[in-house]
Design a binder for these strands. Structure first.
Lengths: 131, 131
DNA sequence: GGATATTATCATGAATATATGATTAATAGC
DNA sequence: GCTATTAATCATATATTCATGATAATATCC
């Protein structure tokens, strides 16, 4: 469902939300058991997106830039995976739309919208006990 | 949602169901506007899976091996994409399960199950006007 | 200002998905 | 058997994702 990268991102953000204070890439990578430098790039991207803030040097690391309860999962995940956006027609018909639907359109829409709703409505705070 | 390959497979199968008689790779590829040899491999795989039958030589080509109304979409798509299978924990926790759920478990399950239900319950016949 | 901790960046590689072009094998019709 | 048709296979190429290792830049602390 999610790419590895997006899953790393989500897990890292949840870890940071749970933790409340900054953590270094090393620490997060160790905790999540994911490749360090790859995670580094992923977190850098989240910082560019304004989801995290980063600080170098001693006492630095990454932390959430946003209140976890205001941070939708979609925002964490969409830099890496296209979850929402316009749903491509399942049958690849370019002209397929709500008004000119392919035979799969409505049912497929109903099913796949559940997934995008999940990421659009749920927040990081929803998924963290402490927060 | 679906990989290109799985989408090709689905579209080809729907084309064949709509058509009712055998069609050659050339014909299908032209109709769907997808790469010929790549589609060829994809269809070959579907033949191995018992979804299609193939015949060489004049008058040959691919055709459905199954009544479209008895052919679940899942069967067309699962050789290429893992749709159903066990849903990986969204947070990557190996011990996550219904009885020992991560915080995202139930909601994520409800959402993503809609998608697998779609492929598990709908048939090719459902998506073809004529059939 | 030197040592250390940490992110940011660069260069590279491996694996997989997607795609193309050429060739081989089987079948049908004559 | 010859020819045309068509799937099956092979060799190769390109793009993307995932990953590793090394280095540079920046901040803190003494």
């Amino acid at each position: 469902m999610l790419s590895h990268t997006a899953e790393y991102a989500l897990r890292a953000v949840l870890f940071l939300a749970d933790r409340g204070e900054p953590a270094s890439v090393d620490e997060i990578a160790k905790q999540l058991q994911v490749p360090r430098n790859y995670l580094s790039k992923t977190l850098y991207r989240l910082a560019q997106e304004g989801v995290l803030t980063s600080a170098r040097g001693k006492g630095g690391g990454f932390r959430l830039a946003v209140d976890p309860h205001r941070l939708k999962l979609l925002r964490v995940v969409e830099p890496f995976d296209q979850i929402s956006g316009e749903r491509r027609c399942l049958l690849g018909r370019p002209q397929c739309s709500d008004r000119n639907p392919c035979p799969a359109h409505h049912q497929w829409r109903a099913a796949s919208e559940r997934v995008s709703e999940f990421f659009r409505d749920r927040t990081v705070g929803d998924l963290v006990k402490g927060a």
